[in-house]
Design a protein around this nucleic acid. Structure first.
Length: 229
DNA sequence: GCGACAG
DNA sequence: ATCTTGTCGC
């Protein structure tokens, strides 16, 4: 029931995908939130090695209590392969199917990957943000592009990630003495807010709760331990 | 040309 | 991402 704007077809070749990114990047807006968010969604996909079937899921939580208030999952197929820099073409199609099953329209969406911390500044969080037309940001577990100085070891510290001289994201410590996560704006949000939201979604683990729960959901789906909701 | 390379 | 048990360190 949640809606989105189908800006373009997903049936493209890698070369066409890069051209689409170049064309879409100008539509991305990096700015503070217009409204204080009450709900946040986490997204993820899972699959069996060498298989084309993908399990996509979205979990919606209240930002104040981190209580899960809705889950949606789908079993789909990914026609596009994983190619560094083109992750959105593999994951967004099935995530949109899960999105369409949501009754709640989340105020902000967190992605397992990057937003502006991308060679063309349009990672999965930014690309999806254009379709969803609402605040989105990325929180990845490793770097695609960019250099940074190691942030201080205590939770909450962060240092800017730079690429060709520009700040594209942040290496953020979400837990004491544990490797940082990499946060970057997707669309309709700024870096500072994305960092604050990531810290607000703390559940005691390195990975913030929205993504962690979405990951658990899709893995349960893949193993047949969970019915499609 | 070589190495890197989100999930 | 996924395949998998134990094990080193705080």
């Amino acid at each position: 029931m949640a809606t989105y704007q189908p800006l373009h077809d997903w049936n493209v070749t890698p070369t066409e995908a890069v051209a689409l990114q170049q064309q879409l990047r100008s539509q991305i807006r990096i700015e503070p939130l217009a409204e204080p968010p009450k709900t946040i969604a986490g997204c993820d996909i899972s699959f069996n090695k060498f298989e084309e079937t993908v399990y996509a899921g979205i979990v919606v939580l209240r930002l104040d209590t981190l209580e899960t208030i809705e889950e949606a999952g789908v079993v789909s197929t990914a026609p596009f392969p994983y190619i560094p820099g083109l992750l959105s073409f593999r994951e967004i199609p099935s995530l949109l199917q899960a999105w369409a099953k949501l009754k709640i329209e989340p105020d902000v969406v967190m992605f397992d990957g990057h937003g502006t911390a991308h060679p063309r500044r349009i990672g999965i969080a930014s690309h999806a943000g254009l379709f969803l037309n609402r605040p989105t940001f990325g929180c990845g577990k490793s770097v695609l592009v960019g250099k940074y100085d190691e942030p201080a070891l205590e939770r909450g510290n962060w240092s800017p990630m730079k690429h060709y001289g520009e700040v594209i994201g942040a290496a953020l410590r979400t837990k004491n003495k544990v490797n940082p996560v990499y946060v970057s704006p997707g669309n309709w949000i700024d870096l500072e807010t994305a960092i604050a939201l990531t810290l607000q979604c703390d559940g005691g683990y390195r990975i913030p709760e929205p993504t962690r729960r979405a990951h658990n959901l899709v893995n349960a789906l893949r193993r047949g331990e969970q019915k499609i909701s």
